[in-house]
Design a binder for these strands. Structure first.
Lengths: 168, 168
DNA sequence: CCCGGATTGACGCCGGTTCGCAATAGCGAG
DNA sequence: CTCGCTATTGCGAACCGGCGTCAATCCGGG
C-alpha cells in the first residue's frame, strides 16, 4: 500500500533517476499545489517526475506511459486532469502542434515552435524572434501574445518549393 | 431528383442570393477544378456558394449546414473531401484556431489571426504584422512561415491582467 | 449516346480528450 | 493516532472533429 513514492535510490538498471535538483523542484511544485488547496498524490509526483525527467515535448500519452512504468494503474484521465491543473498553476505549458495531440513541457523551458506543415519537423526557437510581433500586436490591437501556446506553421528548409536547380 | 444546381434566379425570399460577381468567381473555380481533372458537381457548387456567400470563418459543420439548407442529403464527409480538394487547389485556406474545429475561408481573403485564449475572441490582422517574424525565421532557420494556417494565441485587451493588480 | 473514372452517401471507425460517478486517500484538526 | 472533510482517483463511456471504405451514381469527353 505504500512505496509509490519515488525513493532516493530507485534508479537501478534501466530507469533514469530524476536528478536531485529536479527532485527539489518537484517538492517545490507540490508545495505550490498544496498552497492552492491541492494535495500531493503519488500520481502527481510521478507525473512531475516524468515532466522533469527530460525536457522534451511529450504528449499526454507519452507521459502516461512513463508514469505507468512505475504505477500501471494511473488512469489516462488522471494524467489529463493533472496536466490541466499544472498548467493552471503555471508549472507547465501545453502547445498544440499541428493536428496531433497537444504536447507538454515545463514552463521554465519556454520557447516558440516552428512546425513544417509538410514533414512535421519541429524547430524550437527562442522567444526573441517574436519580439516584433509581440510589440505590434500590443500597440496596434492591445493584444498580449503568448508565444508558447501555439505553433507557427510553414515550410522547413528542406520542404520548400526549390527554384529547382538554379545555379549548377 | 434534379434541380440541385443553384439556378440563376433562385434567390427569392429568404435565401440570400450569391452576388453575381461571386457567381462568376464560382464558375472560375469550377473551371480550375475541371482543368485539374475534377468535375463540377452540385455539392461542389453549393459548397462554393456557401464559401463565397459570406467572407467569414466557418467550420466544416457550419458550411455543411448552409449546404444542407438547399440540399439536405449532401454528406458531411463530402464537405470534408471538397474542402480538402479546394484547399489543395489553393482556393481556400483552413486554419485551426485553438482547440475547436478548423475554420475555412477563401484564400483571397487571406489574413492572420489573433485568438484570445481566455474569451476566444478572434482578431483578424493583415499579413504585414508578421513581416519581421517571417524574415527572421527565413534568415535564421530557413523556415518559410505561412501566416494563414495558424492562430496566434494570447490575451485580448479586455482579458489582460490589469495594471491595477500589481501582483504583490 | 456511352463508358470510365471521378464523386457521392452511408456507415462506422479513429485518436484525443472530457465527463460522471462512486470509492479512495491526503492531511489538518483534535 | 484517529477522524472527517474533500480533493483526487479509477473506471468506463461519451464526445468531438475528422477520415476511410465501398458500392452506387453521375459527369462529361468522345
Amino acid at each position: 500500500m505504500r512505496l509509490l513514492y519515488p525513493e532516493p535510490m530507485t534508479g537501478e538498471g534501466t530507469q533514469v533517476a530524476t536528478a536531485s535538483a529536479d527532485r527539489q523542484a518537484i517538492e517545490d511544485v507540490l508545495a505550490l499545489v498544496r498552497r492552492h488547496g491541492g494535495r500531493a498524490t503519488p500520481a502527481r509526483r510521478l507525473l512531475l517526475n516524468a515532466l522533469f525527467g527530460s525536457r522534451e515535448h511529450r504528449s499526454a500519452e507519452e507521459l502516461a506511459a512513463e508514469v505507468h512504468a512505475q504505477a500501471p494503474d494511473v488512469h489516462l484521465s488522471t494524467i489529463y486532469r493533472n496536466l490541466e491543473e499544472l498548467e493552471r498553476l503555471g508549472v507547465i505549458d501545453s502547445t498544440r502542434l499541428g493536428n496531433g495531440p497537444a504536447t507538454y513541457h515545463l514552463a521554465s523551458a519556454a520557447h516558440g515552435h516552428l512546425v513544417c506543415e509538410q514533414c512535421g519537423t519541429m524547430i524550437e526557437v527562442p522567444d526573441e524572434i517574436f519580439e516584433d510581433l509581440v510589440r505590434v500586436a500590443d500597440t496596434q490591437y492591445g493584444f498580449a501574445i503568448n508565444p508558447h501556446r501555439f505553433a507557427v506553421t510553414g515550410r522547413c528548409a528542406t520542404c520548400q518549393p526549390r527554384p529547382n536547380q538554379p545555379k549548377t
